[in-house]
Design a binder for these strands. Structure first.
Length: 563
RNA sequence: GUCUCCGUAGCUCAGCAGGAUAGAGCAUUCGCCUCCUAAGCGAAAGGCCGCGCGUUCGAAUCGCGCCGGGGACGCCA
């Protein structure tokens, strides 16, 4: 960034412009051989009334190159600048190797808090593949913000309230055969499925279910105990899966947590004249903003998710005083978020501008749809396990001598699954097929992890060799240069990922690092005969290892040293 | 019907505060392990960047209109 400023300062006087005016004209050429920065002269041709190409070559003649640059070249209408590779290489290497696991981090978030609501599973329901995007993206954002110095609050907004628990209890009372504590999620789900089958034949079961939920709401001891135990069971069980993915939450406050916090919201909406009665329900009319009304209280007097989300937003502001509050929730709920954000705005909560719906695409199966009721479910844990099993088989084939195959398989298998939803723009839909999810070739986590392991392997072989004072000017081949540029791009990628709430910016960045390293590795011998060259290349390898590890860590993916 | 998002290679996607011959991976075909992990590297082939109009010196990128697809649209979340 000072590089551009220096160039602007040097060029501006030659064409009678202000340095600040031409600063953002600079661009980075697509191809490395065209230099590191380019100054297009099209716009100057209007002012100077000359052909752009002529301006470029005249500028080149008159220009005094600022320090840090090795040459300038006029190519057609462009003036291309090449940075001095030795000093550039030296500073990148030095920065990575001295900052280590903090390379790419920042203090911009110091003293500020970001809330991230993600994963948000339902109690006594499957933790399924369709939860993967929210879970993986949310966790990556959580880690990225933390890396940038923010205090981060990860919130699993549990679906732990509603008539489905009346159904669960009804089913348990009718068909349960052991203490509720002994029921796994899968067993609870089969009770739930059975309830829906039987309720087809005997609709009165639905009344029983409603009655049981009413008991929960009115604090009936038996109902509360069953509900609480189902909730505890579920949390205990899903924590195992979360742990596999390196995830933990700071808050598990779900829907039930806000039961006693909605009354004040409803009252405030009435008092301020924001809500009104319509068809027996209390609504906020949003037609002025071209939106359907937001329902606050249903005609039967019960609350609804909008009410809960409003209460939750207010609670989080009060409790955490966030500077940003993110909701990692599928785009099906776009309208819902626009509605309740608008209601918060009408309530005078100016901080609602800091709330963001981080939406993502639909998850589907190729030729079926997910449905708990029909029992058509893909458990996330089964998919993780399938990936780990496949990885284990690959390791046995490719690295039969590896000592701890199981832990490497776990890192790589789970990493591959997480990566599948962290490599593309969030908004892209995800359609599940076993072939796709178990493909570890090409632009995948295993590729990046393999590259990391490769770096570690080389470094192990050089354990006794001192490369702490590398001569970066020896890294002047194009492969090393491309790699250095990729390493240099990492800190900006982290910032951009946070700015856009898009983890794929980090994924793409470390993918380009891995790709550049593999080309470098193939073309250049790292353990070169010349000790000075060897030292420089080992330092570069160590820096690569570090950046890959940092990037994978931000995505919540392990970086194994051997695989 | 209204609102909203998306449309780039056979497939999955980058690129879109406008700029130099549009990039990857997968799949296909063909090469590269006497040398640091071949889960790697290379090559070939593959594109009216959905269509049209406009703004501009310049549009995959910005605006408008079509077409095609996803999603949402009052008492589920």
């Amino acid at each position: 960034m000072d590089a551009k400023q220096n160039l602007a300062n040097a060029i501006a006087p030659l064409c009678g412009m202000d340095a600040s005016a031409i600063l953002d004209w600079f661009e980075v050429p697509k191809k490395a051989e065209m230099g590191d920065y380019a100054f297009p002269c099209f716009r100057l041709s209007k002012v100077l009334r000359k052909a752009p190409a002529a301006i470029a070559s005249e500028l080149k003649e008159q220009l005094v190159l600022p320090s840090g640059f090795s040459k300038a070249e006029a190519v057609g209408p462009y003036l291309n600048f090449y940075v001095d590779t030795a000093s550039q290489a030296g500073s990148v290497l030095q920065k990575v190797l001295s900052e280590k696991e903090n390379y790419g981090s920042s203090k911009i978030g110091s003293g500020k808090t970001v809330c991230v609501e993600y994963s948000s599973i339902n109690i006594a329901k499957p933790f399924g593949f369709h939860h993967l995007p929210s879970t993986a993206i949310g966790n990556a954002l959580y880690r990225i913000y933390k890396f940038l110095g923010y205090r981060t609050i990860g919130i699993n907004h549990l679906g732990d309230w509603g008539t489905q628990f009346g159904k669960m209890i009804t089913a348990y009372k009718l068909w349960g055969s052991k203490p509720i504590d002994d029921y796994s999620i899968r067993e609870l789900v089969s009770l739930y499925v059975r309830f829906h089958e039987e309720a087809e034949k005997d609709p009165s079961l639905n009344d029983t279910a409603r009655a049981w939920f009413h008991k929960i709401e009115s604090n009936d001891p038996e109902a509360m105990e069953l509900w609480a135990k189902m909730k505890d069971n579920t949390i205990r069980e899903v924590k195992v899966t979360y742990h596999r993915m390196g995830i933990d939450f700071d808050s598990w406050a779900g829907e039930s947590f806000y039961e006693d916090k909605m009354g004040a919201i409803i009252q405030e909406l009435r008092d301020k004249g924001i809500s009104k009665l319509d068809q027996g329900a209390e609504i906020v009319d949003l037609s002025e903003w071209n939106m359907p009304p937001c329902i606050i209280v249903k005609s039967d007097g019960s609350t609804i998710y909008a009410t809960r989300d409003i209460a939750a937003a207010c609670y989080r502001k009060q409790e955490y005083d966030f500077c940003k509050s993110l909701y990692v929730v599928a785009y099906q709920q776009d309208l819902h978020f626009r509605q309740f954000f608008k209601v918060l705005e009408l309530m005078g909560r100016e901080w609602v501008k800091d709330c963001t719906h981080v939406n993502f695409g639909m998850v589907s199966m190729e030729d079926a749809s997910f449905s708990t009721r029909s029992g058509n479910i893909l458990y996330l844990d089964d998919i993780l396990q399938a990936a780990v099993d496949k990885t284990y088989a690959i390791i046995c084939e490719k690295s039969p001598d590896l000592e701890d195959k199981q832990s490497a398989a776990e890192s790589v298998g789970v990493g591959a699954i997480l990566w599948s939803v962290l490599y593309n723009n969030r908004i892209k839909d995800v359609s599940f097929t076993w072939d796709k999810i178990l493909n570890f070739d090409g632009e995948t986590a295993p590729y990046v992890q393999y590259t990391h392991a490769r770096c570690c392997s080389v470094l192990r072989k050089a354990e006794d060799f001192d490369f702490s004072s590398p001569d970066a000017s020896l890294l002047d081949d194009p492969y090393a240069q491309t790699l250095l540029k990729a390493l240099d791009a990492f800190p900006a990628a982290v910032l951009s990922a946070a700015d856009k709430n898009e983890p794929y910016v980090v994924s793409r960045c470390i993918m380009s690092v891995a790709s550049a390293f593999n080309k470098f590795y193939y073309e250049q011998r790292i353990m070169a005969d010349d000790p000075a060259v060897k030292a420089a290349r080992l330092a570069l390898t160590d820096a690569t290892r570090q950046v890959l590890a940092n990037g994978l860590n931000l995505l919540g993916i392990q970086a194994p040293e051997r695989m």
